[in-house]
Design a protein around this nucleic acid. Sequence first.
DNA 1: CCCCTACATGCAAAGGCATTGCAAGAAGAT
DNA 2: ATCTTCTTGCAATGCCTTTGCATGTAGGGG
Lengths: 146, 146
Amino acid sequence: MARSKTPSLDALRALLRDAGLRCTAPRVAVLEHFQTHRKPLSHGELVEALADREFDAATIYRNLIDLEGAGLVSRVNVGDNVWRFELRDQDAETQREHPHFVCVECGEISCLEQVRIKLTPAPGSLKSVVNQVSEILLKGQCTRCA
Amino acid sequence: MARSKTPSLDALRALLRDAGLRCTAPRVAVLEHFQTHRKPLSHGELVEALADREFDAATIYRNLIDLEGAGLVSRVNVGDNVWRFELRDQDAETQREHPHFVCVECGEISCLEQVRIKLTPAPGSLKSVVNQVSEILLKGQCTRCA
DNA sequence: CCCCTACATGCAAAGGCATTGCAAGAAGAT
DNA sequence: ATCTTCTTGCAATGCCTTTGCATGTAGGGG
């Protein structure tokens, strides 16, 4: 099966159905937008992006929560006190959370899909506190702002 | 000079003065509290902790901002959409930002002072986007919640 | 030691995003 | 086609963050 680069609406509907969610216009629209904008988006950004569809903001909000609950999107916080959501990789077990990088100057958010991060336990603190790392956020300066 | 374990009020005042800030009761109180509670605290937590002093919440809020601007405290966001502040290491150049770890279950925040983190650029994405990393946040499960 | 000015505080209010209650509406099974 | 259950719209609330403005005070100068 080819990697569905095509935002086939039917595929999205199937995705929703399989997740146990009803296929409603707002949900499909949200998923479709994520499909074509593969990076963390806030509720507000999504509402604005779909403004022409005239969905209620609360509906989109609850859809994001629902999609998160269904595992279709994941919620990330890049440090500006605004929740963001992004499409989760649905490819079976390939599914791996990736670190995010936020430029402290321009605010651009990047998904570091390819980067490996290694924690060196050093002395004692790490092992005594950290059991498992599930999310990584890096902040700094991006190359464009350098 | 010994590492000032003593929350000497005079030392705190000097710290403020050197930072170009006036020594007011709220500021000293805030710094003193940080001195004895060395971990990220939110504005709300601070207000509550200093409730008996009856400082205005807005005053404490602005003090946090001022202290941050002066480099005495740093602002961190552990992913719960609430700003937190913590005392910054003032020891000359020893001063190094450390990664933070937040347990997604109990919410406990840990400062990983000793941990070294290595980013493996892998393919292309890292180098093309990241110029400099200044802040690291890890989330996961702590050993107590394991 | 008193005076002055710039900076800080208190009080109040506004803004933004997150979250929820409720009645009307629509998806999907029968 | 009908019915049940999940969703949507609309409105309102809550919490945290942020700011305006008049009053008060720290700290330098006289």
